[in-house]
Design a protein around this nucleic acid. Structure first.
Lengths: 322, 322
DNA sequence: AAGCAACTTGCACATATGTGCAGGATGCTC
DNA sequence: GAGCATCCTGCACATATGTGCAAGTTGCTT
């Protein structure tokens, strides 16, 4: 009917218009339908479309960020900005993870914008987040994989590349994969590979990342982290971790409860970024759900790996408990 | 029941929780009611409460701000960021103003934040905006009145002080009134008063403002600006304006179509800020609706008074027309 | 032009949300 | 503690919104 030569598809334009009328001017869908010369149901669908495409962004703000005492305490005791997800206490761990992941996906887009690099430590938590991403069109942004994947023996979880792809799709960003094993058998192989130009190119991108997104793994958790189920590690390795006093990992890099990670043998063979590299990112977003992650979380906080913590209410409460 | 010693009232906390569950986790009100151990209707009311109190903020984003061609053209031709309000073309001027004002009120809170000073040029447009403000709690912010009020002979419009108060209430900001007449009879009186410490204190605040909010007046408009109705100006004054080639005013300060304002006699007697002072504000938000404002708007744009323009679609289109 | 797949549309109905009203709390004054 | 105003709750109903479906529409292919 009108010219269809526009950069933005007509449907999108209508959706934006409808969103304006609905969310900004508080018109009813009925009224919007009249203005747009269409039916009410079409308006309903237009608005769904707008929400799905991330044309509408909704933000909840605690009154002047003095939020809950919980948030205040997280800030004063651990120096992290808390994003506490309300979840009933008696919910299953699975559901809890899902609900934290939904919120995390929506919070994430406040941190990631055009011209930025986002590092992704894939794992079951981040995988859950990837399923709920709200699209947000950006320019000149890239996603970089932080830890190698190696195999695909794991069941029911998306492979690393698929997780990465979902992030890339949602943000219209370039995806940089990191095609190395999660753990090397021989540290020398890792060292050699790290000197290869193709690898060091990715390492360089990791060093330049602005935002890092990760969960925490915990070797002792009831619901063990993906890394511990995938058959990546041998019984010997577990013994080594225990000997070294490890409580958890971020992107296959292990640390102790006090945040230290020096002399942990397995890290020599891990593909994840040196924790110093991780700390270069201005925003380091940790998603965690369930008290089984508690000790691991404490370690990550002690290691100052986290600037923003997205966590369920119960775990947050446990965290600040003496 | 639980401790009521909290900084944030319990109702607000519940409202935030409900908002999280509803807007972030997409639960239905029914489900939220179960989690909060209350009835669905209460949840509905909690959510209304959260929206009213500005606990929820909704933003529409055109895909990557490459928005409509209209916005692009506004930027390239006038150097302003456009915020175009969709409104049917055949709507009455009154309704059009209301609808632009609703949108303006919601857009404004993206510009005004803690530790900022907001200058308000009161008038019928800004008065309309004041009626739709969404509260947003801030710290250490202030609102300063830009032009004097003088009398209250006008009907149906809120007095300046009431407008100011609404802004102050919505943002929890300190309000600085400017108790001078809109126009002086004798320029010498103005000059004298301007040297008074009580006046110069306010002028100093005006100079430090970060955001200015104003409409434009147009002496020739069908719906004349408040200033022209209030009996502030005499027939002689109108003649003077015409002689000087005036097309409009911002905060009682007049300018010509080309944006110049040198040698306009009436400005010597006006209480509004020197345009240079206005231009000190980093963000200068102009709200305009209806083509009767067109010439005045062109003048304001030529004078580089505006950085952000909130305007109805039809007027925006007229603006970029040759 | 017929045939087909992939969309889009509006209707009718299913759900979800908003709100007037009649209690029932709560907190005050006297 | 009675009397009163104010606020809060849930019910029942009124509106508003979401969605399966059948009937178009569009843009192909043959």
């Amino acid at each position: 009917m009108t010219d269809a030569t526009q950069t933005v598809p007509e449907k999108t334009r209508d959706a934006i218009k409808a969103a304006h009328l609905y969310y900004m001017q508080d018109l009813t869908m009925e009224a919007i339908a009249r203005e747009l010369h269409t039916s009410r149901s079409s308006v309903s669908r237009l608005l769904s479309f707008a929400r799905d495409k991330g044309l509408v962004s909704i933000k909840i703000r605690s009154p002047h960020d003095r939020a809950s005492e919980l948030n205040e305490e997280l800030m004063s005791r651990f120096g992290v900005a808390g994003h506490i997800v309300p979840v009933p206490d008696q919910i299953s761990d699975i559901d809890r993870l899902e609900r934290v992941a939904v919120s995390a996906a929506r919070i994430l887009d406040q941190f990631f914008d055009s011209n930025m690099t986002l590092g992704i430590a894939w794992g079951s938590t981040v995988s859950a987040v990837s399923r709920y991403l709200v699209p947000k069109a950006m320019h000149n942004s890239q996603i970089v994989q932080l830890n190698g994947a190696g195999n695909n023996r794991t069941s029911g979880i998306l492979y690393a590349s698929e997780i990465l792809r979902k992030f890339g799709d949602a943000f219209g960003a370039h995806v940089e994969q990191f095609p190395v094993p999660a753990f090397f058998d021989d540290p020398a192989t890792k060292a050699a590979l790290w000197r290869e130009r193709s690898t060091s190119r990715v390492l360089e991108i990791q060093r330049s990342m602005d935002v890092a997104l990760f969960g925490v793994g915990s070797p002792l958790a009831q619901v063990p982290s993906h890394v511990y189920m995938g058959g990546y590690l041998e019984p010997d390795d577990y013994a080594s971790l225990e000997r070294d006093g490890v409580v958890g990992d971020v992107a296959t890099v292990f640390y102790r409860l006090d945040g230290s990670s020096d002399g942990i043998a397995l890290n020599e063979r891990a593909s994840g970024p040196d924790l110093a590299v991780l700390r270069r990112a201005a925003r380091r977003v940790c998603v965690a759900s369930g008290i089984s992650k508690l000790q691991s979380l404490r370690g990550a906080l002690a290691a100052r790996l986290v600037t923003d913590l997205i966590v369920d209410e119960g775990t947050a409460r446990a965290l600040v408990q003496d």
